[in-house]
Amino acid sequence: MTSAGLSVQGLSAHWDDLHVLEGLSFTVEEGQFTSIVGPSGCGKSSTFAALTGEIPLESGNVSVAGRPVVEHGREFAWMPQSGALLPWRSALDNATLGLELSGTPRAQARERALPFLEGFGLEGFEDSWPSELSGGMAQRVALLRTVLMDRPVLLLDEPFGALDALTRRAMQDWLERLWEKHRWTVVLITHDVREAVFLSDRVFVYSDRPAAVAATVEIDIPRPRRLELIQTPQFARMESEILTHLSLPSSGSK
């Protein structure tokens, strides 16, 4: 039943002189939620840059749904770390940007977006400017833009990283419920180990730069998952396992 949604084999890449990825390999099953955690600056965002074609690959193979990726980008719906909402577009027009740029007429793109507005908590804010939205709402707009592109794999770069702790918890809970409904193939980058455990089926722990997968942790906690789960011993065990992997390679600081 499970097939390889995304398979990455032996990826190496540089930003100019900086060696960021070295023999990076991982597999994400179709309809699986995976997370990448790792030290700051180790090359997590660079992984997405390599997948979307921002940095040229020196070696390695990427395939989506069993087919090798030739023209990068078409398979991936990428959400940048900053969200990158356009200030001159209303919330709704930001959400439909991806569709419009892929050639869907504006009216049709809006029609596609409408059924999602409620689930994304954006009803009544369609016409707001991004500067008028709360941080959480702005991230939901960016997420909706990503989802609407209807591409096989979602690449989410720290979507909740800039939010306050309370809003972040609420967003994690919201995303979990939403994902259970849609079962997208997701790769999520996060600094928040708890977030990774709570949302994922599988967590990749990166090594220091140049990045490779230092450890893979399977999260076999059944769904639906709710926030109370965080209190359970099973959850704490997974969390500490990841933290151990994270602190292994370098100093030993947490």
Binding site: T52, E54, F76, W78, P80, S82, A84, L86, L101, M149
Partner: peptide, 26 residues
């Protein structure tokens, strides 16, 4: 122009003219 937004446009596959009109000019 916000480099993240420019990278987003590229990742979607937007051409030069669309990027100019919908990102750089505004």
């Amino acid at each position: 122009t916000d480099p993240d937004a420019a990278a987003l446009f590229r990742s979607i596959g937007a051409g030069w003219w669309a990027t100019f009109r919908k990102l750089r000019l505004p």
